[in-house]
């Protein structure tokens, strides 16, 4: 770290991978969409009381082309599933998925003909947040866990390949 001192601390030396990961986790833009009642807790997380902008995430993108993170907030019905997968496919790499709430994790109380029994049957989920619905604090904790996960990724040497499981079954 001697170089920095010789340049009067005007530069900072690190490795590229750390820098890429830090950039990604510091402005991870979520996709602005909600599936069910969990979406209300997600909206509460965005607004000023819980203030997701503290983590560089206040820009909920209406277009999947601009989004990095899909928060599957609520019950995914079988009729909605093709649309959810289409939206996920439209997001640019790298992209992450949070399964928010009991329904997105496992189908929740809806063990019936109309509900997908866990979105992880189709999407590569990074973080599962239990709760019915999870409080904003729980969503914040899940997001911070995801940030920690992103910081550990080998984004240069071994980049992740997000892929839908069993697509077009």
């Amino acid at each position: 770290m001697a170089i920095e001192r010789h340049l009067n601390d005007t530069v900072h030396v690190t490795n590229l991978e750390w820098f890429v990961n830090w950039s990604r986790k510091s402005s991870m833009w979520p996709l602005g969409f909600g599936l069910a009642c969990c979406a209300l807790e997600m909206i509460a997380t965005f607004v000023s009381r819980y203030d997701l902008s503290r983590f560089g995430m206040e820009v909920a993108r209406p277009s999947p082309r601009h989004a990095d993170l899909m928060i599957v907030s609520g019950t995914a019905s079988k009729k909605m599933l093709p649309a959810v997968l289409r939206i996920y496919e439209q997001m640019a790499d790298p992209k992450w998925v949070i399964a928010m709430g009991a329904c997105a994790c496992s189908g929740g109380i809806y063990k019936n003909y109309a509900v997908v029994q866990g979105i992880d049957r189709y999407l590569p989920v990074d973080v599962y947040i239990p709760g019915c619905p999870p409080r904003p604090e729980a969503l914040l904790d899940g997001i911070l866990q995801l940030h920690a996960k992103v910081m550990k990724e080998q984004s240069i040497k071994n980049p992740r390949v997000p892929r839908i499981k069993a697509a077009g079954q």
Binding site: L81, P82, E89, N112, Y113, G168, Q169
Partner: peptide, 20 residues
């Protein structure tokens, strides 16, 4: 009708969904 449906009658995705 069985409440949890069946794989044949109530599949998660339409068969051969054409890319979705």
């Amino acid at each position: 009708f069985p409440v949890i449906g069946t794989e044949e009658d109530t599949p998660d995705l339409p068969k051969r969904a054409g890319g979705s």
